[in-house]
Simulated scan of single mutants.
Amino acid sequence: MSEPTFKPILYLKENCPFCLKVRLFVLEAGMMSDVVIRDFVADTAEESAIRAELSPHFEKVSFPSAQLEPGLFIAESDDIVAFLATKAGRDPAGMTVYRNYTDGVFTMAMKLWKENQDLKKSASAI
């Protein structure tokens, strides 16, 4: 009897723009059957359990997170995508949906988030 092949485990938080970036890559690359996705909603018992499961592997747990190989944990969306792209032999730059998200909506959301952080910092200094 052969040992089952390890599938990367992706931990994806609902409404997280970084998690959506990873999910879009996996979908467009046709890798849904090649990974295990553990979706969860923020502030739930399931999130607490996932954080407890991941905490021994990270100084600070953030999402998305992934166990890409047995014992190899990563928590940066770009690093997760790069690993999966290599595994699938896909170039994210040539993936239309992924690129439209990362170059469009995602970029604008990050710009607005940074502006909001700067405004909060300025307001707290007054």
Rank of each mutant, 00 (worst) to 15 (best):
F18T: 02
S55Q: 15
D34G: 09
K87A: 13
D34C: 07
F40T: 03
D79P: 04
K114P: 01
V81T: 07
V36D: 13
A45E: 15
S33Y: 01
D79A: 14
K21N: 09
D118G: 04
K111Y: 09
T5F: 07
P64I: 00
L20W: 11
E46G: 03
V105L: 15
P64E: 04
I80L: 03
T107R: 15
I74C: 14
K13N: 08
M31K: 02
R99K: 15
L24T: 05
I9Q: 08
A66C: 07
A125N: 12
N116G: 13
A52S: 14
I80V: 08
E47S: 08
V41Y: 11
G89P: 07
M1Q: 09
G71A: 09
F73I: 00
W113C: 07
E115R: 08
T96Q: 15
I80D: 10
A93F: 04
N15Y: 09
A93I: 00
L54H: 12
C16L: 04
P64Y: 01
V61K: 12
D43P: 02
F40Y: 08
A88T: 00
M95I: 02
P56T: 01
A125G: 02
V26E: 08
D43G: 03
S65E: 01
N116K: 14
A93Q: 11
L24W: 05
M1E: 11
P70F: 00
K87I: 00
E28C: 04
F58Y: 13
L20C: 05
E46M: 07
A88S: 14
S48F: 01
S62I: 04
P70T: 02
L10Y: 03
D39S: 11
V61I: 03
A123I: 03
R51G: 05
M95F: 05
A42P: 05
A75Q: 15
R99S: 15
F106L: 14
A29S: 08
F106E: 13
A66P: 06
L72A: 06
S55M: 08
W113Y: 13
F25R: 05
E69R: 11
V105Y: 14
P64S: 11
N116T: 10
K111A: 13
E53L: 10
P8K: 00
Q117S: 12
L119V: 00
F40C: 08
Y101N: 08
T5Q: 13
T102S: 15
L12A: 10
E115G: 06
F25S: 10
Y101V: 03
L24E: 10
F83W: 08
V35A: 10
P8N: 02
D78R: 07
P70Q: 08
R90F: 02
P64H: 06
V61R: 13
